[in-house]
Design a protein around this nucleic acid. Structure first.
Length: 775
DNA sequence: TTGGTTGGGATTTTT
DNA sequence: TCCCAACCAA
């Protein structure tokens, strides 16, 4: 390959946007010499299957790739990028590739680097949000955003909303600030700003919110802050309102690729439309069966209607799965097949059947966790721990698994829950950094003005706020002016103002690392924690050190004056999954949502109970249940070799245990592919036979991981758990001959009770209830 | 202003 | 069960 020399660095896309003159120069003068001659792309697709090849080679006009789970879409996508650059004459910075997470972007860049070398650095590759930040940094003034804006996360935004409620004299109890936050997000998702004619104004509340929306936006701009939705909405507005910019973007992004297209929302779709030139060179990749973010505003219609929206679009289906064994694919396929609203496709594989999918019925959440931990321990012989993952519906479910793994000394890693950057001590320190970057940010200021304690309480702060409002200046300027006036309040404020001035000086000449060190120095943050001496304080110190480490690492990566701002941008946009590093061998656990896009040798999908997975809050609508089912499908299709499904008959919630029944997603699993395992407990009582007795428990067999527990006997003697309210229509049951089923109805009582049961094979049979065991 | 206690409420999922 | 917000005492 011809080295790119001068034109390469001169045309560095990071300095974007270059003036038109530079563009013209680099193209006319250097293009002939330095653009590598297009190479025949055959070697790039030689090892791909036919539809994958088609996806890579379709470079004119809109392309929709419907890519099933594990069908090699990332591979096809990366090859396509390489093909565009190496064979079609695109420069890397003319290609925009949007991924769902930063981690996915980093992976794609790394893969692209194998094919493109250094040039991969120049690709526009990131999440919608990170791309949005870059666009907004450059052109934000056009929509009233300062170039040095900070990004508010959800909790910062909530604080700002509370301020607005106070300013507007609204009772936070009568008009929920949370609901308003959701309102703002929803409007921006629909590309509607304050005063937009289509803002909902039906009821009183909506009119109150519509007014408040204007106030909120004004306060955000004055604070030099943007919220998450702004990162999409504002770039869209810039393009929509400024034809020159729109044309500039369109000619810059000559080819656009979007991954996980099923989870894009309307604003993202609209932004794409703005950036897309008349040639419509766009390739979107997604899977309607894996759409799991409808609750966050994702619009499946984007992918379902793509072919109509983009007339003449090429549609390509990737249906061969390279990831999972046939048994796993069969089970997942049967689960998703029960959804009505889908394109309808069936993945296939030429892999072997593999291990049967294991279904385990646990007595309790603890029993479930013990089973999983024991399995993990056994499977360590064949699989690295990092190749084993435990998935659950809600973060709160992680604890029993943590306990069980810890007690066996198995290293594990919990992904999600409380994010690193959401921890109080980290938020404090980041708030200092944010304030240095943008002193007008009142949310960060209020957070840290009295951390550590400086005797600045509510009253003092209110006086400052009143003064600032009176003078029409920012809170920070109000604080600074009062600090200088020699009064008693001023005396308390002065040291703080002095500290901030010092920090600003450090920031002016130093890196982000220098600033954080000055913050720690000036606040004695670590020393104060040390004095505390508690275990929690120790953990906090560790976190602080980790933050400093992260900043040090970052400062090396990004040089110079931009490092503080760039670091803040990055921390504002990291997600849980981005934080997962591959070093260290540990079993990982996370929610099913977080699992999207990952794969493991061994997967445990846990808590498959009615009300939990599918979750109550989604169970009342068909759409809701279908989304839950897709989520279950996503979770199951992460598995390469072994898939374990588990549920528990009793589960602790809010500290007390309540009984549960098997999830409907376990109904009708394909007989041949699934193997049932029961817990060590003697099965619960036949219907109508009275109470279950712990004495009936059979002795566990030593070598069976399911037979490992002799404790945790469910407390059926407890009044609240009277079994009479257990078995009934809907209960999951087990029959020695017909397997699992669900009771339709029961006749008679005691020994002579008969039940009609719908079994997994779809048949409904009438049987003596005493031959059934309640699951 | 601060720090502690107490009572009520929470749990869906997150860029 | 745990976490936070509101309240209260010093």
């Amino acid at each position: 390959m011809v080295p790119r020399g001068a034109a390469g660095s001169g045309g560095a896309p990071e300095k974007w946007p270059r003036s038109a003159a530079v563009d013209a120069m680099s193209q006319s003068q250097f293009q002939l010499d330095l653009r590598p001659a297009p190479v025949d792309g055959k070697h790039l697709v030689a090892d791909l299957n036919e539809p994958q090849q088609a996806a890579v080679l379709a470079t004119e006009g809109p392309v929709l790739v419907l890519a099933g789970a594990g069908s090699g879409k990332t591979r096809a996508l990366t090859r396509k990028i390489a093909y565009l650059v190496l064979s079609c004459g695109y420069e890397p910075w003319e290609i925009l590739a949007v991924t769902f997470t930063n981690k996915a972007a980093a992976e794609m860049r790394e893969r692209a680097a194998h094919l493109l070398g250094d040039r991969a650095k120049d690709l526009w590759l990131g999440t919608f949000h990170s791309i949005g930040v870059r666009l907004l940094r450059r052109h934000g003034e056009l929509v009233g955003v300062k170039p040095r804006f900070v990004i508010y996360d959800q909790s910062d935004q909530q604080v700002m909303i509370n301020r607005c409620f106070e300013k507007a004299n609204l009772d936070a109890k009568a008009y929920s600030p949370k609901a308003f936050g959701a309102y703002v997000e929803q409007q921006k998702r629909e590309c509607r700003g304050p005063g937009h004619p289509e803002l909902p104004a039906g009821d009183f509340l909506e009119r109150v919110f519509a007014d408040l929306y204007g106030l909120y936006e004004g306060e955000m701009r004055a604070a030099g802050a943007v919220d998450f939705s702004d990162l999409i909405y504002l770039p869209w507005r810039i393009a929509a309102e400024n034809p020159t910019i729109r044309i500039e973007w369109q000619s810059r992004f000559r080819y656009i690729l979007v991954d996980e297209f099923q989870d894009t929302n309307r604003a993202q779709y609209q932004l794409l439309h703005q950036m897309l030139g008349p040639d419509r060179r766009i390739c979107v990749v997604g899977d309607d069966d894996q759409s799991i973010y409808r609750w966050r505003g994702a619009d499946v219609q984007n992918i379902l209607g793509f072919a109509e929206d983009f007339e003449g679009a090429t549609v390509i289906r990737l249906e061969q799965n390279y990831r999972s064994s046939k048994n796993i694919l069969d089970v997942a396929g049967d689960v998703i097949a029960q959804n009505r609203t889908r394109h309808g496709k069936r993945l296939w594989t030429d892999q072997a059947r593999g291990e049967p999918v294991k279904l385990y019925t646990a007595q309790s959440d603890r029993d479930e966790a013990e089973y999983v931990a024991r399995r993990v321990d056994l499977l360590r012989a064949d699989h690295a721990l990092r190749e084993m993952a435990i998935f659950y519906r809600t973060n709160a479910q992680s604890r029993p698994f943590e306990d069980a793994l810890r007690s066996r000394g198995i290293p594990y890693k919990v992904v999600g829950g409380l994010r690193f950057y959401d921890r109080a001590e980290i938020k404090d320190l980041v708030a200092y950094l944010k304030l240095v970057a943008n002193p007008d940010d009142p949310v960060s200021l209020e957070r840290i003005i009295n951390k550590p304690a400086r005797g600045i309480g509510k009253v003092t702060l209110e006086k400052c706020a009143a003064y600032a409002a009176d003078q029409g200046i920012s809170l920070w300027r109000g604080v600074r002016e009062i600090a200088g006036d020699g009064g008693s309040i001023g005396g308390k404020l002065e040291p703080f103002v002095k500290l901030m001035d010092e920090l600003a000086e450090v920031a002016a000449s130093g890196s982000a690392l220098a600033v954080i060190q000055a913050v720690l120095e000036g606040t004695q943050y670590i020393e104060l924690l040390e004095k505390d001496g508690t275990v929690e304080a120790q953990a906090r110190i560790e976190n602080v050190k980790e933050l400093v480490g992260a900043i040090a690492e970052f400062t090396e990566r990004v040089e110079g004056d931009r490092s503080l701002g760039a670091f803040l941008d990055e921390v504002s946009l990291v997600s849980d999954i981005d934080q997962v590093d591959d070093d260290g061998d540990a079993c990982v656990m996370m929610t099913a949502h977080t699992a999207k896009g990952l794969e493991f040798d061994v997967v445990f999908v846990t808590g498959l109970e009615e009300g939990l997975f599918p979750h109550f809050n989604s169970s009342d609508s068909d759409d809701g249940v279908e989304e839950e089912r897709r989520l279950a499908y996503v979770a199951m299709t992460r598995a390469r070799q072994r898939l374990h499904l588990t549920y528990a008959l009793s589960r602790r919630r809010f500290g007390q245990s309540s009984s549960a029944t098997a999830s409907r997603f376990l109904d009708g699993l394909p007989q041949g592919a699934v193997e049932t395992e029961a817990s060590s407990y003697r099965p619960p009582p036949p219907l109508g036979s009275g109470r279950w007795d712990a004495r009936n428990r059979v002795a566990p067999a030593d070598d069976d991981p399911a037979m490992d527990y002799v404790y945790d006997v469910p407390d059926y003697a407890d009044e609240s758990q009277d079994p009479s309210d257990g078995p009934g229509p809907g209960s999951a049951v087990f029959h020695p001959q017909f397997g699992q089923g669900r009771i339709v109805d029961i006749e008679g009582q005691g020994e002579r009770a008969k039940a009609r049961v719908r079994f997994a094979d779809g048949e409904t049979r009438k049987l003596m209830a005493r031959f059934l065991t309640l699951l």
